[in-house]
Write a protein that binds this DNA or RNA. Structure first.
Length: 277
DNA sequence: ATGGCTTACAAAGTAAGA
């Protein structure tokens, strides 16, 4: 059985509902994690998703900012998790799939951006980002010690770890999202739990990979000053499922940055998994 | 040449993103 998963920071799901539906029709993922939905849970536009087969919807919304939602064609149940020390709606965890042996966990994250100054002593937002990452680490360490449940972690992690995950490593070393402290914490989270970073699994280290481009600047694709802030990770039990499809099983949908008059500043990312591999 | 833009909101200017 093959499944296709996707993640997208949509920057207002109500404003861009037509773009989300277009993407789902074109790419047909089984599961999509959305971030920055920017609406309260009851205001999430569920109907257009149900109309095209995404019957299972789990939303963590709040007024105005943040918010995450996961929509699925496959049966899906909520897992109770709590990662945000400030209580923001920044994550939705679910178990996807009816058959117990083919199901997987889908953890959808919107990690705090962290403000402007990369110093937790003077910037509460950066401290919040570090605290959120620490909570993720505690949770996945406990789960890791209980045995591999088959986990997929997706979302806007707001960290671009590799040198070629940003347009200029040197110029972004002091810019939040690419500072050594954040990068080390994210890499430790990945390595100590043996998560596979799907975007880098088959990509050459020298290849630039971006999933976000600022709204500032008139031609984002021409200047191409992007960052890879969005991620799809899998636990060891699912690594063969990712390996099976090779490089073509992964895609960062770069054209979506300029495919509409008012696009999101992030583009969606997809990964096909062969659960029989 | 990173911030010059974009979003939501007890609607004009804030706060927030990254």
């Amino acid at each position: 059985m093959k499944v296709k998963v996707a993640t997208w920071n949509i920057n207002s799901v109500r404003l861009r509902i037509d773009q989300v539906i277009r993407f789902l029709k074109e790419e047909q993922p089984d599961v999509l994690g959305l971030q920055e939905i920017k609406c309260e849970t009851p205001l999430f536009p569920s109907e257009p998703f149900r109309d095209i087969g995404y019957e299972f919807i789990e939303v963590a919304g709040q007024k105005g900012y943040h918010g995450a939602a996961t929509v699925s064609k496959l049966p899906m149940e909520r897992l109770e998790t709590d990662f945000c020390p400030l209580g923001h709606a920044r994550h939705v965890s679910t178990r996807v799939g009816a058959a117990a042996d083919k199901s997987f966990e889908f953890h959808n994250f919107y990690i705090p951006a962290g403000g402007d100054v990369a110093d937790p002593a003077v910037n509460d937002k950066f401290q919040h980002k570090l605290d959120f990452l620490a909570n993720m680490n505690s949770y996945f360490t406990q789960r890791y010690n209980e045995g591999d449940a088959g986990q997929i972690l997706v979302g806007d992690f707001n960290i671009a770890p590799h040198e070629n995950d940003v347009w200029s490593h040197k110029q972004l070393l002091k810019v939040v999202s690419h500072t050594p402290m954040e990068v080390e914490i994210l890499e430790n989270l990945q390595k100590t739990h043996d998560f596979t970073d799907c975007s880098r699994l088959f990509a050459d280290d020298a290849e630039k990979l971006f999933s976000w481009w600022s709204y500032r600047g008139r031609d984002p694709m021409k200047s191409n000053r992007g960052r890879r802030l969005d991620h799809i990770w899998v636990s060891p039990a699912l690594k063969p499922a990712v390996m099976a499809g090779g490089k073509e099983a992964h895609a960062i949908h770069v054209p979506c940055r300029v495919w509409a008059e008012k696009p999101s500043d992030h583009v969606p990312m997809t990964q096909v998994l062969d659960l029989n591999a």
